[in-house]
Design a protein around this nucleic acid. Structure first.
Lengths: 209, 209, 209, 209
DNA sequence: AATGAATGAGGCTTCATTCAT
DNA sequence: GATGAATGAAGCCTCATTCAT
């Protein structure tokens, strides 16, 4: 009687809260992926849950709130992994290959979240970049700057290189998840060779001058 | 001199119609670029015009209609130019460089339309791809297939190469127009070298084996 | 030179006006019959004409104007005929039979205008009574009063008898035009017998007391 | 006493819902009766209520929805009563008299709903028949067919007889509620005698031949 | 904390009518 | 007189959010 309930009451509540929050998040993920932000309404979301509509606002401040929460979640999970990969890298090859491999693996596993989203118009597709995603972009740029400083990378334009890497990553990932089955290894190899080959040429040019 | 005003009445009306249509399109372009699709309402658009609200619907069937009309317009202008550039190309260098140059020039001139658009949430950015844009993507892919068949390009994965080119184009363009002044020539050179370098490596790999 | 154009110029215009007016009326008849007042818009009407939308207002003041014009037209055509029939009647049998026969014949010929009209809701049907129609009703009532005074009809409630006759007329007509082919003679016989039989009973009752 | 408030919470809510729904229905009844379908707008309805405009759509899907709901309600109330009356009838007199009496009583009590409705044009009146009403018509027709088969009614045209009865009912009811006070008994007697007399004549004719 | 009905601002769109040509 | 684009008032409805229970 005494020992068992040290925290259980609170725990139970906390557990329930966590479960509910996750249930809402999962439902929202699905609906946003299906309909896009504009066409999704919170009743769609809460409807895929066994919760009441009012409950939504116990967990999220607004529709927008949960939207960015979901998007950020990806960036927040990915960024540390990508970061770690780049820091671990001992050569330019590892720097590039490691990042792409991590990214494509993640996308292949969570492909639902990356499928290009259909807007309410049903004719328009879009790709979304939250501030977290953008922060991840800048993180990459800074690492590029550092790598250039360390001589690991040739002195290319860091902003453009970052953009190129990100563009390739997202766009090739898009193609990848449309294939059956998705082939993250193949995609990573392709992207890596492209970037490495490109950089080697640039290095050449630099050295020539 | 003699048979002057055969159709002036009609012409005047037609002219007025064309002017009004363009005025609405221009206004919409501005507002969509500022606010994004979700946050824009028809009154915002028509408000930047000296027309009445109902007039909007004499020219466009719906808010969505004008939206995709605007987006498609870019693709419809760009696609033929890119196509021509690629067809004219006599070497792999021209194939790649010509396309990028055309694209970055266009974006630099019409940068308003390419500025990443803030969604109604004001925190989320997105890039939109209408069916026209997607058709342009596929056109590129087919040209790549043809170029591979002709031996101009090494036997890489055409879908991935198309994706990589498109990804680089859009993402680097995004960086480019944030610079002051935008430097389409620099961006094109960067993108071209990257792709050409990458392809040369791949060709190497292919020939080696 | 002199004689030929006595009135032709004016006549031509007048003729054209009459033709246009009739064309609009005919188109409106069709559309109102198909869609009902609420769901019909003047572009639907003018669209079935080779005239421009603005021209509509050269002939009718408003949508409502043409609507009642059409409805009244029936009453205005029918009322004199019914009136004449009743005046000519030399017996109660002729009084009743003549009216019904005239009415059902008219409806059979102009059935389009009497088909019960579907409202915009597409689920609701309605029957319309303009002031002209209502005036026709009252005319009948007054004739009944007169007939009672003259001893041709038994002293029944004139308002109710009028209502009964009108109700039978419209409702049976409705059934009639749904049959293929419509049988105005049969309908008239049925209605006549019903009313005559009923009146004879009432006469009996009246005489008994 | 012991297990009192098992579901009070739910009950209270349900009660409130029922009250609100009825309030909206009542308001709508009034406004539709006054203005007709076309001229009525949802704000007119909700305005006669202490509810918010959006609340309307928690109870009815659309303006049309509530409209037919109201109309059907009459038919749904009346039809079983009329049906029962006819089934209970042991003679042709009861068959006819019972139905009319029930109908005119109902109309006298709910006269508001039967007042011929003024259309948005303010000059046009109409009478509405939803599918429920029409179903009631057909029910009557089938009972007539059965009664003919059982020899209770002479072999007249069932469709026309039904139409005649319905026409008389609605049209005489219309006159009735314009009188002060309405006299359902008198109206029922009039209609009954008319139909019975008419049928007796028809029976005669039929038997004669 | 959970519920779900209530809210009302605001959006998109229609359409009868006007008016310049 | 004919035209048809322009007009803008007004309608229906959606939906994120609040709140009483």
């Amino acid at each position: 009687m005494a020992t068992p309930q040290v925290t259980p009451l609170v725990d139970k509540r906390e557990a329930r809260k966590a479960i509910n929050r996750q249930a809402i998040l999962d439902a929202a993920r699905l609906v946003f992926a299906e309909l896009g932000y504009g066409a999704t309404n919170v009743r769609d979301i809460i409807g895929r849950t066994d919760l009441g509509s009012g409950t939504f606002y116990n967990y999220f401040r607004s529709k927008e709130d949960i939207y960015t929460a979901i998007l950020d979640q990806n960036a927040l999970r990915l960024r540390p992994r990508l970061r770690a990969e780049r820091i671990r890298a001992k050569s330019i090859e590892e720097f590039v290959a490691g990042g792409f491999q991590t990214f494509f693996d993640y996308v292949a596993n969570e492909e639902m979240m990356f499928r290009v989203v259909r807007d309410q118009s049903r004719h328009v597709k879009m790709r979304i970049q939250t501030s977290e995603v953008l922060a991840g972009f800048d993180e990459l740029r800074l690492d590029i700057v550092a790598a250039i400083g360390a001589g690991v990378l040739p002195p290319v334009d860091p902003g453009y290189l970052m953009a190129a890497i990100a563009g390739i990553a997202f766009e090739v990932a898009n193609r990848m998840i449309e294939r059956d089955p998705p082939d993250p290894k193949g995609a990573a190899e392709f992207a890596t060779q492209l970037i490495l080959g490109g950089l080697s040429k640039m290095r050449g040019r630099q050295t020539d001058e």
